[in-house]
Simulated assay, not measured.
Amino acid sequence: MKSLKKISILLVLAFISLNVAYAQTTRKDKKAAHVAEIKSMVEAQNYIFNANYVIPSRGASMSLTSNYDLVVSKDTIIAFLPYFGRSYAAPYNPTEGGIKFTNTHFTYNSKAGKKGGWTVTIKPIGKDKNVSDWRDVQSMMLSISSDGYASLQVISSNRTPISFNGTIEARKK
């Protein structure tokens, strides 16, 4: 009887240890696959930055309750982001507040970080340097972690800088 109990206890322990080892391997594999997916999106210039927290230069930081994003593709960037801060010039169209534009003329530079993330700099270029084409945005700098978390800093010529925290996800086709 005692040997039967010992055998059954050993079998249960072996079963538990195999499950734990399998779960750890599965987690590592999933994380590695996620990191590879983020890397391929950044290198292919094909992703969406979903903003969920805003950090203005002045005033309080706050969570965003609506959907705001920056869509990046090889040929187009589409910004739909809120703006909280000081503006030094009135907007061209008062009904369009925030940082909202679509631009097909921009530079995109990505650089791998030391700890596995990326720093992406996007500089919109207006046709013939016309300010109204790109809504005074000078540059956008994305700091992307290998886990898919990111922060975006927007530098404008007529507004104080603003930052956003959020996540990176694949664009839906």
Score class of each variant (00 low, 15 high):
A14R: 01
K172G: 07
Y149I: 06
L70I: 05
I48K: 10
F106G: 04
D147K: 13
Y53F: 15
K173Y: 00
E169T: 15
Q24W: 03
T167I: 11
I77H: 08
Y47D: 09
M141W: 00
I38V: 15
K129H: 05
P56L: 10
A89R: 07
H34S: 12
Q153T: 13
A21S: 12
V42S: 09
T26N: 15
P56R: 14
K123C: 04
N52C: 03
G166L: 02
I16Q: 05
R86S: 09
S151M: 11
M41G: 00
Y92G: 03
S61L: 04
K74W: 04
L142W: 05
M141N: 13
E169P: 02
N46C: 09
A21R: 04
D69E: 10
K74T: 12
S132P: 00
N165V: 07
V137G: 05
S87W: 02
P124H: 08
F80I: 06
E43G: 07
N50S: 14
K74D: 08
S132Q: 10
L142A: 11
S61E: 07
T25S: 14
V154Y: 02
V12A: 14
G148V: 05
L10P: 00
I7M: 13
T76A: 13
P124M: 03
N158T: 14
P94T: 06
N158W: 02
T121R: 07
S110M: 03
N67F: 14
S17T: 15
D75A: 12
F101L: 09
S73W: 01
P124S: 07
L10W: 08
I9P: 00
K2G: 14
T160D: 15
K111T: 12
D136H: 02
G166F: 03
P161N: 10
K39Y: 04
P124F: 03
K5T: 02
P161A: 04
T26K: 15
T121E: 11
A60V: 11
R58G: 04
S40H: 09
I99M: 05
A51P: 10
I9D: 06
T104F: 03
N158E: 09
T95E: 10
S87V: 04
P82Y: 06
N109I: 06
Y88W: 11
S151T: 15
A51H: 09
P91C: 03
K6D: 13
G116R: 08
E96T: 09
I99Q: 01
A32P: 04
K127C: 02
V154L: 02
K2H: 08
K31Y: 13
D29P: 00
Y149F: 13
I162H: 02
N158Q: 11
Q153S: 12
K2V: 05
A44S: 15
S40W: 00
A79E: 05
I9A: 14
G126I: 01
N130M: 08
V120W: 05
N52D: 15
L70G: 06
E43V: 10
F106P: 03
K39D: 14
A51C: 11
T95Q: 09
N103Y: 11
K100L: 05
G148N: 06
T160Q: 10
E37R: 05
F15G: 14
I7N: 11
R171W: 00
P124N: 09
S57P: 00
W134L: 02
Y68D: 01
A33D: 10
T76R: 14
F164R: 05
M1F: 14
N103G: 08
D133P: 02
G59N: 07
T102W: 01
M141T: 15
S157P: 00
Q138P: 00
